[in-house]
Write a protein that binds this DNA or RNA. Structure first.
Lengths: 239, 239
DNA sequence: TTTCGTAACAGATCATACAAGTTGAAGTAA
DNA sequence: TTACTTCAACTTGTATGATCTGTTACGAAA
């Protein structure tokens, strides 16, 4: 009978109640995307609360991406972007990151990315090819000593492959992982002799397979690339 | 040279600057989880800002799950829960209904989950088996008319397979996807004659393969299960 | 018609006061 | 000494009013 003493409905603060009210109005489409909310002063009167409490509720709503506040203009219901959700996941991954997780991150990539390359080959649009091609030419032009920029470009290439899958769930899943890669950069993309040439060639193969809609070749090429990453990491560990 | 007229860096408000500062401190582990922040008044002095501006920054941080504010006690750095990120993702799909979501989820699962089953077969611990077995017996005991509970149990089984992979990245990758599954519950686990028996059998096969550390069999069994889901969804679409 | 200034209005910030919850130490009774 | 009570000194929450800064629309001037 512990339930009798269960926590009492954790006294919501006033500003939280206001937040809920407005959130509900948006969820129920009583406030449509783009609609302008009444001004702060008006809302204060309507809710019969102080501007302090009201503003804090509005701050929370804007932090969650539900409304946009434009100084001098007003407050507007904003279309919630998938980016807001991804940012939130990125933050979680960022705070959870630990260098012990590196081999596990590589394992996930080894397992998932070849399949993603296959999906990209099947679903890619022409504009995806442009982006991939640009990544490769950027990689070629990149100063060989600038391993940091090199790694960034490579990450962008892989993210663009995920985008070429045309499946937002894939993007949501992989983007947080890619956001962690810069933190393992110097561990993995170590300066190995002739490595850059190999990397460019490998990525070009992936690109061509996606371009030709050759799903199996894209799969295999990606397997090769990730295995190479794994090898370099293993070498690094031995040092 | 369009860059010349690029949008000017939308002047951050003071409270946003404060938000960033504190967020960075948390990201860089200068403030550890559970640590108590200085009181509002102290922070005001430190940042040399008014309490209003400071509090609005703190409201945003708490809305994002980074800190917890206890009235009368103080403010504490809170361990960011994946639930916060998942809530954000679900809010997005609540507001922007997308009929493509279900096939996209199925596609991702079809590609990822067999590999996860393989990893689970290789890495599972005994306690993972207990959980999986319990899911199956729960499924057997479940009232056949309660399709909602059936679907929940099945989802738990799949999440437990992910956990059995012993790769935390796999788990946090899949959790957001599983959080979206309730949306397809009544669509997919429709009452098809004999479907429940098939489902139980299929999941038992997956379980046995993981138990026996037979990675290939686990892979194949999972492929079969997800394909079956796809079939049922396709049938549903035709109606 | 175009340009430009300006007034009205929006949110942003500040300062102060008080309400309400939490904590811990001082004090009291057994 | 020990256990309980009380209360003062914190904490955050809310209210109010003044002021600063950016946006918008309108009308006067070119």
């Amino acid at each position: 009978m512990d339930e009798i003493f269960e926590k009492i409905g954790s006294a919501q603060t006033l500003s939280q109640k206001i937040e809920r009210r407005i959130e509900e109005a948006i969820r129920q489409k009583k406030l449509l995307v783009g609609a302008k909310l009444p001004s702060e002063r008006e809302l204060c009167e309507m809710f019969a609360v102080s501007r302090t409490a009201l503003r804090e509720a509005l701050r929370r709503l804007s932090a969650r991406g539900l409304i946009e506040i434009k100084k001098g203009s007003g407050m507007y219901v904003s279309e919630l972007k998938i980016k807001d959700a991804i940012d939130s996941l990125n933050l979680y991954y960022d705070l959870s990151f630990d260098s012990n997780l590196i081999p596990q991150i590589i394992e996930v990539r080894r397992v998932f990315e070849p399949e993603i390359a296959r999906m990209a080959a099947n679903n890619r649009r022409d504009k995806d090819l442009d982006l991939l091609l640009k990544n490769i030419s950027d990689l070629e032009d990149c100063d060989p000593d600038n391993t940091q920029m090199e790694a960034d470009i490579i990450n962008k290439f892989h993210l663009n492959v995920a985008k070429a899958s045309c499946n937002p769930i894939v993007i949501i899943t992989m983007e947080p992982i890619y956001s962690l890669l810069p933190r393992m950069r110097n561990l993995i993309y170590a300066n190995v002799d002739g490595e850059k040439d190999f990397t460019i060639k490998a990525h070009r193969t992936i690109y061509e397979a996606i371009r030709d809609k050759d799903a199996d070749k894209a799969f295999e090429a990606m397997v090769g690339q990730i295995n190479r990453t794994l090898e370099i990491y293993t070498q690094y560990l031995k040092k």
